[in-house]
């Protein structure tokens, strides 16, 4: 099922949580809404689900306008961060709930409900735990039951609100891989919210980066990581370093000298240069480069992160070097960013 969000605005008591957001979700796609808290990602998800109504704009399921439909009519599977399992029901009753509350001929007989619940329990690899209560399950198991429960109603769209947010790192990683497998096996259109960029980039077909109620960028992990289209995305996704520069005659200048980077289309004047700390080319001499004094050097996992003090303004930037690189021992390092981008000075 395709989902189209068209110019949606949402206000809570006059406070705008989403400004004019539009998004096309393809059928069968696994898409992540990524952003810091307060970016509106959960609000967008709840709007798609029908747990909230948009102040303005429309939401389409396929060609159908779903904006005014209730959550029951939209037939979406929703998975909550804190599971929201019914604590007085067994696992199998939790999963069968959505079928049990149906009316008339669409309601399968009790035996059929049980069989479907068992099948789903198999799918989420929890067979044998039918009679358990939620309180007797670990966090990871509860979230898998919650997913099975959401899938039991054969939803048009699967929506997950920070599904792994309450779990510890090890379990998160396992469930992430597992969710990907389930998605590939069942082919549900799936939207999940996360504030964890690693989760979003690793799991999703496309990532929607959000900030302050707006969509900053939509793209694959490669698009988002390699060609961020705003200072926010640069700063939010992965590591980034920024330097205040000047553009003159299509060349980038740091303080009073050119750093050997051409920017023929950039408007002259002040700008900010963004680059990835690991994407730098180290240089020996310095005619047209960025040079700085090593202020601090830290070992971070497989690399060495070096903090450089640049020029007279003592502006600090970080670059990453291989652990055994001789430059890490020096007191002065010269480099030039590999991939970089200019944004107007803030």
């Amino acid at each position: 099922m395709e989902v189209r969000v068209a110019n949606v605005r949402k206000e809570f008591e006059r406070f705008p949580a989403l400004h004019d957001v539009s998004l096309d979700i393809k059928s069968g796609e696994l898409i992540a809404l990524l952003g810091p808290s307060g970016s509106g990602k959960t609000t967008l998800l709840r709007l798609i689900a029908g747990l909230e109504r948009p102040t303005r704009g429309k939401i389409f399921f396929g060609d159908e306008d779903a904006s005014q439909k209730s959550i029951q009519e939209r037939n979406v599977g929703f998975v909550f961060q804190h599971y929201a399992l019914f604590r007085h029901m067994t696992v199998v009753d939790n999963i069968g709930f959505g079928l049990k509350v149906r009316h008339g001929p669409s309601r399968p007989p009790a035996q059929e409900i049980r069989r479907r619940a068992s099948e789903l329990l198999d799918l989420v690899q929890l067979s044998g735990l039918e009679k358990r209560y939620p309180a007797q399950l670990s966090g990871g198991q509860r979230q898998r039951v919650a997913l099975a429960r959401a899938m039991a109603i054969e939803p048009k769209v699967l929506l997950l609100d920070e599904p792994f947010g309450a779990l510890d790192a090890q379990v998160r990683r396992e469930l992430r891989r597992w969710l990907r497998e389930i998605h590939d096996a069942t082919g549900h259109t799936t939207v999940f919210v996360t504030h964890d960029q690693e989760e979003a980039l690793e799991l999703a077909d496309r990532v929607v980066v959000m900030s302050q109620g707006r969509i900053e960028q939509v793209g694959t992990a490669d698009d988002i990581y390699d060609t961020p289209n705003s200072p926010f995305v640069y700063g939010f996704i992965g590591e980034s370093s920024a330097l205040p520069v000047k553009i003159e005659n299509g060349e980038i200048w740091l303080a009073d000298r050119p750093i050997g980077l051409q920017a023929p289309h950039a408007p002259p004047g002040d700008a900010t240069l963004y680059f990835r700390p690991h994407d730098v080319e180290l240089l020996d001499g310095c005619s047209g480069c960025i040079a700085g004094t090593v202020a601090a050097s830290r070992r971070v996992a497989g690399t060495r992160r070096v903090e450089l003090e640049i020029g007279g303004e003592r502006k600090r930037v970080e670059i990453e070097l291989p652990v055994d690189h001789p430059a890490a021992q020096k007191s002065r390092v010269a480099f030039r960013p590999g991939r970089w981008k200019l944004f107007p000075a803030a």
Partner: peptide, 25 residues
């Protein structure tokens, strides 16, 4: 409201949500 929202998203109406979810809680 979490449990109630879950029940609604699974298709339960208000009365079913009250009877099966809220009251037992």
């Amino acid at each position: 409201n979490g449990d109630e929202e879950a029940a609604l998203s699974l298709g339960a109406n208000g009365w079913q949500t009250f009877w099966y979810v809220t009251l037992p809680n």
